[in-house]
Computed example of a mutant assay.
Amino acid sequence: MSEPKRKRSDGLETIDRIVSFAAAELDEVGPVQFNVIRVLEKAGVSRSSVYHHFHNREGLIAAVEVQRLLEQLTVTNKTTREFVSQAESAEVILGAIETVLKIAGSEDGKQNRRRRIATMAAAQTIPVLAASIADTQMRGDEYMAGTLQVAVDKGLIAPTESLLGIAQWIGSLALGRATVDLATDVGGDEQWLSATMFSLRALLKPMK
């Protein structure tokens, strides 16, 4: 009964090793000159391992981008938890959220959303990456719900919906905003921001 578990563990270790060396290669030469053979030689794995787990060169590059995206999401969640834990009022929290959303409306923010969507779309064709995104998203939503619970326990908010539901809604904002990015109306983003903050206030119901 232990043999399948050992094989699965070995497979995950191989994936981590390949992605680690692929990340170093990508940092060193960029996506245009990215060389799979060089990655294989440095990682000490067979070509079949790459194509089995990632399908092709583009899939391996996508794996690196997915890993970095998930790491960024984890850092964001932890930073948010720390900020909420130290906040003395809901208005401070909402003000910070609005500032972050305004900054995300910049051209750099739009580019980041486009890359994130492209990365997630590419990952859906590779089972190991799709599963990793799904697992991280689920755990991220639960972590955000826990962060909201911290605010509840401090008496800062009195949510009008389930904490997990609100957390999932917050998590969907980045991708949903991408549709606003496509609009030619220069005032579209301001209207989206206003509606988002109104909805957030209604969902969180600030108490102090």
Rank of each mutant, 00 (worst) to 15 (best):
Gln111Asn: 13
Ile93Leu: 11
Thr119Asn: 08
Val150Ser: 06
Gln168Met: 11
Ser132Ala: 13
Ile157Ser: 01
Tyr143Cys: 04
Ala123His: 09
Gln168His: 08
Glu161Gln: 14
Leu175Gln: 13
Arg113Ala: 01
Arg114Tyr: 10
Ser194Asn: 09
Asp135Arg: 15
Val150Met: 11
Val100Glu: 12
Ala183Lys: 11
Leu101Gly: 04
Ser106Leu: 07
Leu129Gly: 01
Thr184Asp: 13
Glu91Lys: 05
Leu156Ala: 06
Ile133Trp: 10
Ile93Trp: 03
Leu163Gly: 01
Thr179Asp: 13
Lys110Cys: 03
Gln191Glu: 12
Ile166Asp: 07
Gly140Trp: 03
Lys154Tyr: 05
Leu94Asp: 10
Val92Met: 09
Ser162Cys: 02
Gly146Arg: 09
Thr125Arg: 12
Ala118Asn: 10
Thr184Arg: 12
Leu173Thr: 15
Ala123Met: 04
Val128Trp: 03
Ala118Ile: 00
Thr136Tyr: 02
Ala122Pro: 08
Ser194Gln: 14
Val152Gly: 01
Leu164Val: 13
Trp192Ser: 03
Gln111Asp: 09
Leu94Pro: 12
Arg139Gln: 13
Ile103Ser: 05
Ala178Ile: 00
Ile166Gly: 05
Thr99Phe: 04
Gly95Tyr: 08
Met120Arg: 15
Leu148Ser: 02
Phe198Cys: 01
Asp135Tyr: 01
Trp169Gly: 02
Ala122Leu: 05
Glu98Met: 03
Leu148His: 05
Leu182Gln: 15
Asp189Gln: 07
Ile166Ser: 07
Asp108Gly: 02
Ala195Ile: 02
Gly105Asp: 07
Ile117Gly: 05
Gly109Ala: 01
Gly146Met: 08
Leu148Ile: 09
Gln111Ala: 11
Ala183Gln: 14
Leu94Ser: 07
Ile133Pro: 10
Ala151Ile: 05
Thr119Arg: 04
Arg114Asp: 09
Asp189Val: 00
Ser199Cys: 07
Met138Ser: 11
Ala131Asp: 15
Gln111Ser: 04
Pro127Arg: 04
Glu91Tyr: 14
Thr160Leu: 00
Arg177Phe: 07
Gln149Ser: 03
Glu161Gly: 00
Leu182Tyr: 03
Tyr143Arg: 10
Thr125Trp: 02
Thr136Trp: 01
Arg116Glu: 11
Gly176Arg: 12
Gly95Ala: 07
Ala134Val: 09
Arg113Met: 03
Thr136Gln: 14
Asp135His: 11
Ser194Lys: 15
Glu161Trp: 07
Ala158Ile: 04
Glu190Ile: 01
Ala167Leu: 08
Leu148Gln: 06
Leu175Glu: 14
Leu129Met: 11
Ala121Gln: 13
Arg113Ser: 03
Leu164Arg: 12
Ala121Ile: 12
Ile97Thr: 10
Ala151Ser: 05
Ala122Gln: 13
Thr179Ile: 11
Gly187Asp: 15
Met138Lys: 15
Arg115Lys: 15
Leu193Thr: 00
